[in-house]
Amino acid sequence: MKSLILLTGARFLVPLFLVFSLYVLLRGHNAPGGGFIGGLIAACGFTLYAFAAGVEAARKALRIDPRTIGILGLICALIGAFASAFTGQEPFAGVWGEVWGYAVSSVLVFDIGVYLAVFGGMLTLIFALEETA
């Protein structure tokens, strides 16, 4: 399916999807949002691009294999889960610290892990389905 309108539209929409997904990811700590839905939105962006320009182009734009992204997400989430071991707390307990005046926690690391895992996992599946269709 080649459509100039879709392709031009996708070029504008993909960055918007990505920025919005980051926004949803970061606001997810106390408000509706979070890693899962953020990852889905980002995956939607790339799926749109894959529909418009083809899976090959989408893979090239992504640069990294989506499966690797997903596994990195899993590792990131595990780091978030293990962080409380170093402070002697229960598993999965949030560890808080301050970076440049911003409160940063292991919960965020976990959420970023979920974001990457969902993003990578969904794209792996969708690209595989598209390529074999």
Partner: peptide
């Protein structure tokens, strides 16, 4: 519980 997932992540990587 967590350890097999660590193994899985390393093994998949």
């Amino acid at each position: 519980i967590l350890f097999p997932f660590c193994t899985a992540a390393l093994s998949l990587l």
